[in-house]
Simulated scan of single mutants.
Amino acid sequence: MSTSREGDRDRDEEGRARNARPRDGLGRPLPHGAAGVERQPEGVVRTAAQSVAEAQALLDAGRPFHAHEVFEDAWKSGPESERGLWRALAQTAVGLTHAARGNATGGARLLRRGADGLVEWQGKGRGVAPAGLDTAGLVRWAQELAGEVERSAEAVDAAAVAPRLT
């Protein structure tokens, strides 16, 4: 991707905004030239099992922002019947990202939104989630963490509170 500076925004060849700045492990932009964490490639098509395995490794490493990108790829490339599931998982990962950054309000809100999305997906009679995903356990995890984040209003250790996806 080539970028040009237009004002203070990085743009691709079509003029779409693309932030080429390096990012830290929680996805926060760093100054140009700083050493950052390697970003997840965008638009990767994976099987459900590959998505779950990669996202779990990223969550375990305390990188929920990057796990969210894996879930987002699954959401955009997966079967229509699974899109709500992957979108909800992406929202929980972003919620964990915000909670780890110390944004209790945003973290709790997105954790609950993701949990609600998982409940909605389950309620549509979808049957068993792909790749052994434990949707009921993930709903409990997200709701409990949302409450803890609101009560403490302190940044969480993303790796320490990461969920088990299966």
Rank of each mutant, 00 (worst) to 15 (best):
P29R: 00
R18Y: 12
A74G: 12
Q56W: 09
D157S: 07
L145Y: 05
N103G: 02
R113D: 05
S81D: 12
R112F: 01
L30N: 09
R126W: 02
T166V: 07
R140Q: 14
A93Y: 07
A88C: 14
D157P: 04
G123V: 09
R21Y: 11
G95C: 04
R113G: 00
R39P: 08
G106H: 00
A35G: 07
D134S: 11
A160L: 03
A104L: 00
N19P: 04
D157F: 07
G123P: 11
P79I: 05
L59Q: 09
G62C: 11
V139I: 10
E82N: 03
Q40W: 10
G78M: 03
H68Q: 12
D10L: 15
T135W: 01
E13C: 11
E82I: 03
G117M: 07
A48H: 09
G62I: 13
R151I: 00
S51A: 15
K124W: 09
V161E: 04
S4F: 13
D10K: 12
P31C: 03
R16L: 02
G123K: 02
A158K: 09
G36K: 05
A153N: 03
R46V: 02
A35I: 10
L96P: 07
V52R: 04
R87S: 15
V149A: 06
A57H: 13
G147I: 10
R5D: 13
T3W: 14
A61R: 07
G125L: 04
A104G: 00
R46M: 06
G7Q: 15
W141Y: 12
A159M: 08
G27V: 00
T105L: 06
P29L: 00
P41W: 09
A93T: 12
V45T: 06
D73I: 01
V94P: 01
G95S: 10
D157W: 02
W141N: 02
F65P: 09
L118R: 06
E6F: 12
S152W: 04
G36Q: 04
P79E: 13
A74N: 08
Q50H: 13
A67Y: 11
D116S: 06
D73E: 06
A115S: 04
R5S: 14
H32G: 05
P130K: 05
D60I: 14
R164M: 02
E54F: 08
D116W: 02
M1A: 12
E120I: 03
L145T: 02
S77P: 03
D134T: 01
Q56G: 06
G107Q: 06
V44T: 08
E80A: 12
Q143L: 07
L165S: 01
A61W: 11
T97N: 09
P64W: 11
R39K: 12
T135A: 06
Q91I: 12
R63P: 01
A17H: 08
L145D: 04
